[in-house]
Design a protein around this nucleic acid. Structure first.
Lengths: 166, 166
DNA sequence: GCCTTTCAATTGAACTGTCAACAAATCTCC
DNA sequence: GGAGATTTGTTGACAGTTCAATTGAAAGGC
């Protein structure tokens, strides 16, 4: 390590702004979902992602990737959601340990009930505060960083198949 | 609630990009600090903020505000950091329950050792990936949202004083 | 056909964060 | 001047997350 390139005032401000944003916005949305629908933000996200699939199902590892979570975190959460009857898991016969998680009817009902409030909150606390340019910039920034982290983190192979085929 | 204004494709993409960013970047920085210096990102942040004060001290509630954390979270973390000898707390005589947290010499040593690696990681995974315009946008976005959340959350009064005066 | 490796997912223990209750000092105001 | 309100912090119980170890199924290799 050569002599450190410290952050200048603008860089510092940008990083601190992101750090605060990344802490406070999720906390706010989480509190709101918890209060109004008894779901954590992450639980909601899991159900929402499933609800967008036309089979309402996804393999655990795919679901983990789409929700930016570890498989372990997802597995524990799936156990809880399953216990509440919002989601069901089933082994994918003939495919190693692959498991698909499926939204139950009850789970569907819960997401559908929560979605409008959640979207309204995302609008109120983020989208509607930003100029179109900044919205575009936010997307660019997020995509750039996440793509970079994917590359750095390691190269992954993508497999596919099993259930899905309606 | 009238009929929901759903997010259009751009809005959705921006929100998802932020959600992924807010999950993955802190996780990456956290893992790095943990691995190389045995600190969580939040612990580092606490020590770093203290190290920037010329007295190396701050009142607990000020420290909580600067690190976007709850007082409770900070208190638990302070207990752990105190146990490790990196930080010391002392009641502020004559000022209610006010307490100041101070970085110890050992704490200073630890932050100073961790800072270059941490800054390098912030550069590598965020700052150096972004165009100057996007850096400015990120700052604007974060400030806008956090200011908004402060206003919505409640109006706060700012007090000051006690120790500080080296 | 076994033995090893790899992939996918789960589990349990340890740790961290949250929420609600409590504690301590000071304010306030009749 | 004292009862209650306010501010500031801590605590304990509980829920959620992470990390390392483990299981289960398949794929390779020889």
């Amino acid at each position: 390590m050569v002599s450190t390139r410290w952050l200048d005032a603008d860089e510092r401000a940008a990083w601190l702004a992101l750090a605060a944003l990344a802490t406070r916005l999720p906390a706010t949305l989480d509190a709101q979902l918890q209060r109004e629908h008894g779901l954590s933000l992450f639980e909601y996200l899991v159900l929402a992602v499933l609800s967008e699939q036309d089979t309402r199902s996804l393999q655990m590892s795919e679901l983990a990737a789409l929700t930016s979570s570890s498989l372990s975190r997802l597995s524990h959460t799936a156990t809880r959601l399953e216990r509440q009857g919002l989601l069901a898991r089933a082994r994918c016969a003939g495919r190693g340990r692959r498991t698909v998680a499926t939204l139950t009817d009850q789970g569907w009902t819960v997401v559908v009930a929560a979605a409008p409030d959640h979207v309204a909150a995302v609008r109120a606390h983020l989208i509607d505060l930003l100029a179109p340019d900044d919205l575009a910039a936010l997307r660019r920034i997020g995509d750039t960083v996440v793509t970079h982290l994917d590359e750095v983190g390691s190269a992954q192979s993508s497999t596919d198949g099993c259930s899905d085929a309606r």
